[in-house]
Amino acid sequence: MSPTPSSPAPLLYRHRHLLGIEGLTRPEIGSLLDLSESYIEPIRSKTKSALLVGRTVINLFFENSTRTRTSFELAAKRLGADVINMQVQASSIKKGETLLDTAMTLNAMHPDVLVVRHPDSGAVNLLSQKVDGAVINAGDGSHEHPTQALLDAVTIRRRRGRLEGQLVAICGDVLHSRVARSNIHLLTTMGARVRVIAPPTLLPAAIERLGVEAFTDMRKGLKDCDIVMMLRLQSERMHGSHVPSTREYFHFFGLDYGKLDAAKPDALIMHPGPMNRGVEIDSEVADDIDRSAIREQVEMGVAVRMACLDVLTRPLRSNAEA
């Protein structure tokens, strides 16, 4: 039953948690991407591993999610872990039990990995300071969503062979997007060039200090891009209205074939989901099997999450062997 190491690649990621991409080095990210790719074949051949048999993974979600939670659940089950899903409504937090109370309670159950999503930036960092197990940030407020950036990177790497030198446009609600922030950190670290395109009301202050070029015109921003990453318009995070209407937003910032013409002819279209069709992306473009990598992103998501669970439990497993 002793599991064989899943990858011969040297382990470069040595952090206890995965809270964000910011601060990770190029070799660390590279090794996570390599390991993720090694999990694609087992997923496709439906091979179940015993790597995490006897280990517990708790998916602790303070925000509604189907896609990410399912992806983590499947990844953990493919590795043989016991998985518990906890969906905590933000309202029950308000009833008195604090985030840290919840963390302490769960900690007493000795999970090996906590996968946490929370509507507030920094909440996952806070929780990680109070628990013994490894913590994976599955999205905190408008801060980071590291596994999304990793799966996007794997997708790009497989389609284009490399990240370095790619010209990537991240379009839409950058202000509220944790996906945008994690992708900016990852892509700039790996040597890609990044543009962000949005109306000024959806661009965060000083965004260019993160090493990106900012545009407020889709056609100008998309010019010669290799990759077009669309973001979901996050009405639920907005204080007041940032754009006059979804109709106007689609007119100027929705991705349709007209605007896509400015990008390279073979530009790849990505979206973290769930999509607002007709708001940030035209349905036809989203479903264009020649251009859209959206389905592949979902598939890579499982591989990336398997890799992250693998990496973060290695110290535990080597202790157990010793």
Binding site: G122, D140, S142, P204, A205
Partner: peptide, 21 residues
């Protein structure tokens, strides 16, 4: 300032916190 948690700028953007200009 509504909804803001810290000074607006690069750090607020990195932390994903709403800024107060």
């Amino acid at each position: 300032a509504d909804g803001g948690a810290m000074n607006s700028g690069e750090l607020a953007t990195r932390l994903g916190l709403a800024g107060i200009p």
